[in-house]
Amino acid sequence: MANVRWVADPMHSEVQFKVKHLMITTVTGYFNQFTVEAESEDEQFTGARNIVFTADVNSISTNNEQRDTHLKSPDFFDVEQHSEIRFVGTKYEHVGGDRFKLHGDLTIRDITKPVTVDVEFGGIVVDPYGQTKAGFTVNGKISRKEFGLTWNAVTEAGSVVVSDEIKLQAEVQLVKQA
């Protein structure tokens, strides 16, 4: 069985997270530098395995420099000690149609926990430059406190400033490697 190797096309992929602020609005952030690598049995992405995602925490952006600096501090990601977020897939499970569950181990701040995300397979296409590409939409949720991201504050009325639940969303375009 031949192995087909895939890597993310960073120009056509994005990784974002959403968190409730003051429990009334949502703030969106991005990791601007990340990698995704995977293998499959064939060009149709059958039998996907060895799926590894890494994000450079220093590339975090919420369109607010002060908030980004706070997120990089020991209060949150502690980028000086933990510069990378890593997800290693353990099982790519077909659940029907173009839907899959990707099970794996997520590591943030040297804390590793099992996580399952929903994957919608967008299909395979050959682009105008002859490159074979596979597209995916990924959605999931994690508890930030489970990964040591426990900083919070409470408003005068007793509301939490930052929610525990973090929504994950990614659009990933993988390129078949020669």
Rank of each mutant, 00 (worst) to 15 (best):
K72Q: 14
K72L: 14
K72W: 06
S73L: 09
S73E: 12
S73M: 04
S73D: 08
P74M: 10
P74D: 10
P74G: 09
P74A: 06
P74N: 07
P74K: 11
D75Y: 10
D75T: 10
D75C: 09
D75N: 15
D75M: 13
F76N: 07
F76K: 10
F76M: 11
F76I: 08
F77P: 08
D78M: 09
D78V: 09
D78W: 06
D78P: 05
V79K: 12
V79T: 14
V79Y: 03
V79A: 15
V79E: 14
V79C: 10
V79G: 05
E80Q: 14
E80K: 15
H82I: 08
H82M: 09
H82R: 08
H82C: 12
H82Q: 11
S83P: 15
S83G: 15
S83H: 14
S83M: 08
S83I: 09
E84M: 11
E84H: 09
E84C: 06
E84Q: 14
I85W: 03
I85R: 06
I85V: 15
I85P: 07
I85D: 01
R86F: 01
R86D: 01
R86V: 14
R86P: 04
R86K: 15
R86M: 03
R86C: 02
F87A: 00
F87R: 01
F87H: 02
F87W: 13
F87L: 08
F87V: 00
F87C: 00
F87S: 03
V88D: 04
V88M: 08
V88W: 03
V88I: 13
G89P: 03
G89R: 05
G89M: 00
T90H: 07
T90W: 03
T90S: 14
T90L: 04
T90R: 01
T90I: 04
K91C: 04
K91P: 00
Y92W: 10
Y92T: 01
E93A: 07
E93N: 10
H94N: 14
H94F: 09
H94A: 15
H94Q: 12
H94M: 07
V95D: 04
V95F: 07
V95Y: 03
V95E: 12
V95Q: 11
G96V: 08
G96I: 10
G97M: 08
G97T: 07
G97E: 10
D98L: 06
D98C: 06
D98K: 14
R99F: 06
R99I: 02
R99V: 05
R99A: 12
R99D: 14
R99N: 13
R99Q: 13
F100H: 09
F100I: 01
F100G: 01
F100S: 00
K101I: 02
L102E: 02
L102Y: 00
H103Q: 04
H103T: 04
H103D: 01
H103I: 01
H103M: 04
G104K: 02
G104F: 03
G104A: 05
G104S: 07
G104P: 05
G104M: 03
D105G: 03
D105A: 07
D105T: 02
D105Q: 09
D105R: 04
D105K: 05
L106E: 02
L106T: 05
L106M: 13
T107Y: 07
T107W: 02
T107R: 04
T107S: 12
